[in-house]
Simulated assay, not measured.
Amino acid sequence: MKGHNVGYIRVSSGSQNTERQLADIALDATFTDKASGKNTDRPELDKCFNHLRRGDTLHVHSIDRLARNLKDLQTLVDALKIKGVSVHFHKENLIFDASASSPMQELMFQMLGAFAQFERTLIKERQREGIAAAKARGQKLGAPPKLSLAQVAEIKDLALPGADKSAIAKQFGISRPTLYKILAA
Rank of each mutant, 00 (worst) to 15 (best):
L112P: 00
Q74C: 12
L158H: 05
D24N: 11
P103W: 08
L22R: 00
M108I: 09
E154G: 07
R128H: 13
L66R: 04
V85T: 03
M104W: 04
L183H: 05
P161W: 06
E125C: 06
L58T: 03
E19C: 09
A169Q: 08
V85K: 02
V77T: 08
H4A: 12
L80Q: 03
K181R: 15
L52N: 00
P145C: 07
P145T: 10
S175G: 14
A163N: 07
K156T: 03
D41C: 04
K124P: 02
V77P: 01
Y180R: 07
G3K: 08
G7E: 01
G138W: 09
L70Y: 02
L122K: 06
D157A: 14
T75E: 06
S175Y: 11
L183K: 04
H59V: 02
A136L: 12
L52C: 01
F109N: 07
D24A: 11
H90D: 13
S148T: 15
G173I: 11
Q171T: 15
D72I: 02
R10M: 09
A167I: 11
N17S: 14
A35G: 07
F89T: 04
G142S: 06
T75H: 05
D46S: 10
K135F: 02
K181C: 04
A79G: 11
S148A: 02
I123Q: 03
I131T: 09
L94Q: 04
D46G: 08
C48Q: 09
A79T: 11
Q21E: 01
A98D: 06
A29K: 15
F109I: 13
S99W: 08
K165P: 03
I123P: 00
E92A: 01
M104A: 10
L76R: 01
V6F: 10
T18P: 14
Q117F: 04
L122H: 05
I168K: 04
K170Q: 15
S148W: 02
R10C: 06
D157Q: 13
A159D: 05
S36F: 13
R65M: 00
K34Q: 12
K140S: 10
N69P: 01
L58W: 07
R42D: 00
L122A: 04
I25R: 06
L141E: 05
V77I: 06
V6G: 06
L183V: 07
M104C: 00
T18S: 15
E44D: 12
V87S: 00
